[in-house]
């Protein structure tokens, strides 16, 4: 029993890592621009396809492909900001619809470029670290955990210790006051969009060898990310990370001991309960909606 619990815990830690990368990006975009980016799951998918195109098809080293994925998807984010969210700044529902349009375009491009089939991405390494009998973690999953911890710490440092980070948090808290202090709303929106999208791309790129890559993989990701940001409190980065861990553990344990669909139902119920009892989430303070 202990082995099973420990093993499930390790699996959950891996799930928590990539979920929190995606959710933190979504929260950052919502916080600074006030728009729900429905295409966030497809940005994750785009990151995976960069790895398919570079690493699986063209033998580029994996970590170069991952960095390329981060930058490529970050640039996609900048395109979204410039073309969609900036003109629709006063129309939050419009931003949501535009991101749905962008989602359809990204999906169609993936289908056109790669076909509807599942992509095979050769595993980076077959090594497995064995802690004890029946408790082990594949090294590929460990990389995801390490990358998530490093990137999230870097983001935390950036937000709390640098001038750009301060500006970003200021415009998330009160865009008007921030603008009056001479902070460029456009600039902070671009930074937030690049980081938010880039993180989703990074998560997609890192997990590409571990999941089934297909043009419609974004759907599960965006549902999970929504649950996490609601449970954590919309607009709270710390909340998103904590909720990712909680959600990943609950989901992984229910999947292991019962089944996957029941795990999805549990996750959604968790979100519904949080919405009913404390709509601002576990860590949310100000009501933005």
């Amino acid at each position: 029993m202990f082995e099973l619990l420990a093993q499930t815990g390790l699996n959950a830690a891996y799930a928590a890592s990539y979920i929190s990368l995606v959710a933190v990006g979504l929260v950052l975009i919502f916080g600074v621009m006030g728009v729900i980016n429905f295409a966030h799951g497809e940005l994750f998918m785009a990151g995976s396809y960069v790895v398919v195109a570079l690493y699986a098809d063209r033998m580029v080293p994996f970590f170069v492909a991952v960095v390329a994925g981060l930058i490529f998807v970050g640039i996609l984010g900048l395109i979204m900001e410039r073309a969609l969210f900036r003109p629709l700044r006063d129309n939050p529902l419009g931003g949501l619809v535009a991101s749905i349009g962008f989602l359809l375009i990204l999906q169609a491009l993936a289908v056109l470029g790669f076909g509807v089939r599942m992509e095979y991405v050769p595993p980076l390494t077959q090594d497995v670290i064995v802690f004890a009998d029946k408790i082990s973690i594949p090294v590929a999953r460990l990389y995801v955990i390490i990358a998530a911890v490093v990137m999230l710490s870097a983001l935390w440092y950036f937000l709390k210790r640098t001038r750009f980070g301060w500006a970003l948090r200021a415009s998330a808290q009160d865009p008007e006051a921030a603008a009056l202090q001479g902070i460029s709303v456009t600039q902070t929106a671009m930074i937030a969009m690049f980081i938010g999208a880039g993180f989703a791309g990074l998560a997609g790129a890192l997990t590409a060898p571990l999941v089934s890559v297909n043009p419609h993989m974004g759907h599960t990701i965006i549902v999970t990310a929504f649950i996490v940001i609601i449970v954590g409190g919309v607009g709270s980065l710390e909340g998103a990370v904590v909720a990712s861990v909680v959600y990943a553990f609950v989901h992984t344990f229910v999947t292991t001991f019962y089944d996957g669909v029941l795990a999805d139902i549990t996750g959604l119920s968790l979100m519904l309960i949080v919405l009913i009892v404390k709509p601002t989430g576990l860590f949310g303070s100000a009501d933005r909606a």
């Binding site: 969609l84 535009a98 749905i100 349009g101 962008f102 359809l104 375009i105 169609a108 491009l109 056109l112």
Partner: peptide, 12 residues
């Protein structure tokens, strides 16, 4: 195959 793409474009 390009239908969703054009549809998305129309939406935007």
């Amino acid at each position: 195959q390009t239908r969703p793409l054009i549809y998305g474009l129309i939406l935007i």
